[in-house]
Each structure stands twice: as structure tokens, then as C-alpha cells.
Design a protein around this nucleic acid. Structure first.
Lengths: 213, 213
DNA sequence: CGGCATCCGGGCCGATACTG
DNA sequence: CAGTATCGGCCCGGATGCCG
């Protein structure tokens, strides 16, 4: 550990020593959504080698960022309170990197946990407070992401249920959140496909979730 | 570049692809203080191999984070507007890592730019607004860091001048900023040494700069 | 002398195979 | 499903050399 240490007494260097390794903050990103099993983490990070995932989990546990928690026969990984305090870091990184997202490439995927954190980053509390409570379903490949907005509260979960608007959430959703594409044109051009519900509610969605590009 | 790419269409992954390499965010940290020459960056990052510094500077330039700027015979590196937008990321990382700073080890150094960013992180605007304008000098090894607080404005520069309080800013200053050590006890135990000026002004300093531990 | 480029040795990362 | 074992390659780190 001494070799890959930066040799400075400084908060930033300390933070990078703890969570600066490759893949570490992406594991934290997914765990910020909720506790996850080993296989769920591996599925949400398709390109991570399994030995690296195992190594990072041990290092992050050692660093006090996460803990293994036994849950009725299986083990889940969950953030410690200290690890949860990384949320501002992850949100700030997400907001900054969002500006540098070009057009999606074919090999790039959008995972449920990544989209969840993007929505948390883009959520505008003050705008949402002025709008009626709304439930959206964003279809990601096969399963749906349930986005429930009520006042200043945002809740993103898996699973189905009654929704006001269901739509496909491909990579093109990025251009709606950035404002590059108006909701109307997104639907007209087929970038976002309305599965059911009132299509005009996509305007409310765009008002609720916005990030500068 | 495709190999070390995370394969996800997500702001956080994009950010980590751009500034997630080892040393990259520390270069950004120092450039957030001001433009720096190659040798100044190398001096502020004592353990960085020179080839890695050269490589990172090229990558960060390629990423649009910084640019080489010719300044009267010499070249300086400075952040682009896009690179300057990394400040929230660096501050959030610094605030988080600050909590995990244990006791300083002998081999660890405190550089001027690192301390400057720590002070920016710890600066409490609302508290400072209620206090009279004050200039501190924090002695770091041989030269002084001039900390000027006026209302909600914080200015940290190199060089000397008239100050209200001058003190030594070793690693122990961490315990004053965290509140672990009261200003009085810091002076009494010699952790902070008053070089000149009214020692009681260290209390004002501690009120102005605070970070949770 | 400041600003890099080059050249190795070691370690981390990534892909695959394997096991309880 | 949840990891461990192994191995090739590449990146990082340290030293040194070049060049204006």
C-alpha cells in the first residue's frame, strides 16, 4: 500500500488512495442505489474482470467504504455511512462527465443503476415541487425502471406497477435531459418511444430532470 | 483508448475515463489554484515520475481539461473553462478524504497548492461574512501562504506582506480545522506556532475554516 | 537548467479457466 | 452463484539521456 500512496497529507490524495483505483467509484455508484449481491454488481459492470471485482470489494471493505452483510442465506454488499458520504463526489463527477458524453456508441450500454444515479444527478427539486406527483416507467432493455416523483422526493426502483407514462430509455434520453432535443421532437423522431400513457408527460419529465451539456 | 474505456454510456464513467487515471486529479487540483509551469507541477507532486507527468498533461489537453499557454517566453499549463468545472468534484473529494486523514506520517508533505485547496474546501462563507477582514500567513517550510479573507471572499496567494497573524502550517493544522484541537490548545502544545501577530486570531481562523472529521 | 523523451523492471489489470 | 487461480500484456515508476 505504501507504493501506490501519493506521499501527501491532503484530503484529496487520501480520497484517491481509498477510491481512486480503477472501477472503485463505479462499484460505489451502484451501491449508492442500494445493497447489491456479487452477481448483481458483476452484471451492472459488464466489463469488470471478476478477480478485479473481488479485489476491489475487499479493498473498499478495508477502507471502511462498504461492508459485507449477511441477508437471509445470501451475502450482500452495502455502503457504510462513510461510504454513503461519497454521494456528493459521485454526483459531481456525473454532472461533469455528462457534458462530455458525445453520441452513444454501439458497444456502450446503459445499466439500471447508472441511469438511476444519472436521474438523481439531474433531479431538480425546486421544479419538481411545483409539479403534480408523477410516476414514469423507463424501459431499459427488458425490464422497467420505476421513477416516482412526489414533491421534492425522488424514488427510483425496479419493478412494475401503475404509471402515468412509460417510455423507452435508450442512450438517446441523454439528449432530452440535456435539452438538446425537445420532448416533442424526441417522440417525433423515435428517439424516445412512448409505450403507454400520455406522451405530453415527457415534457414534465424533461422539466424535472435536467443537466447542462 | 478503447481498452481502458468502461463500455458504459454514463456521465460518471465518462468522467473517470477523462480524469480517472492516476495523478490526473492531483494535476487538476494544483491547476485550480492557478496556471503552473511544468517544473512547478513536478515540484508540487514530488512523487510523480516525469514521464507520467508529461503523459497526463498530454491526455488532459486531449480531453479538453487543460491547455498549454505561451506566456512571455515560457509555457504554462492552465485549465480550460471545462477543466475549471471540475472544482466541485475536487472539493467534494477533498471534504470526504479529509475525514479519513489519520495522523500525518513523516514521509508525507503538505504542498502549498494542496493546502490552498484544503482551505477553499473548508472555507465557511456564512461565518466569514460576520467577521472582520483578516489576513493570515501560513508558513509552509520556507515560504508563506497568504490567506486573505474579506467578507465572503477568500484569496490565497504566495508571497509576503502585512498580516494580522502569522503561524506555522504543519500537518497538525488539520486538527485545528477539524475542531479536534481548540486553537488555544494548538498553540499551548506547540502544534501551531505563532510567528507574529495576535495569537487569539487563530480562533477566528478556526471559525472561518472548518471541515468535519 | 527546465522540459521533456527513452528505456527497462515490476506490478496491476484484463481475459479465461476453474472450483465449492 | 460467488468467488479463486493463472497468465500475458500494459501501465506505472525510477533512472537516465537529450535538446533547446
Amino acid at each position: 500500500m505504501a507504493a501506490r500512496d501519493y506521499g501527501q497529507y491532503c484530503g484529496i490524495t487520501r480520497a484517491l488512495e481509498l477510491v481512486g483505483e480503477r472501477w472503485a467509484l463505479l462499484i460505489v455508484r451502484d451501491l449508492l442505489v442500494g445493497p447489491r449481491r456479487y452477481g448483481e454488481l458483476a452484471a451492472g459492470l459488464p466489463r469488470i474482470p471478476t478477480n478485479i471485482l473481488a479485489t476491489r470489494l475487499k479493498e473498499l471493505q478495508e477502507a471502511g467504504v462498504l461492508q459485507r452483510a449477511p441477508r437471509s442465506r445470501v451475502v450482500v454488499y452495502e455502503l457504510t455511512p462513510f461510504g454513503r458520504e461519497l454521494e456528493p463526489v459521485v454526483l459531481a463527477l456525473g454532472a461533469w462527465g455528462f457534458k462530455a458524453l458525445g453520441d452513444p456508441r454501439d458497444e456502450q450500454v446503459v445499466t439500471a443503476d447508472a441511469l438511476t444515479m444519472t436521474l438523481r444527478t439531474a433531479f431538480r427539486e425546486t421544479v419538481a415541487a411545483t409539479l403534480p406527483a408523477t410516476t414514469y416507467a423507463a424501459r431499459l432493455g427488458t425490464d422497467d425502471l420505476l421513477v416516482h416523483v412526489d414533491g421534492t422526493a425522488l424514488d427510483v426502483t425496479r419493478g412494475g406497477g401503475a404509471v402515468d407514462l412509460a417510455f423507452t430509455a435508450g442512450p438517446g434520453l441523454h439528449r432530452v435531459i440535456s435539452g438538446e432535443l425537445t420532448p416533442d421532437r424526441a417522440i417525433a423522431t423515435g428517439v424516445v418511444e412512448v409505450l403507454h400513457g400520455r406522451g405530453d408527460l415527457l415534457g414534465r419529465f424533461a422539466a424535472t430532470f435536467h443537466l447542462a451539456a
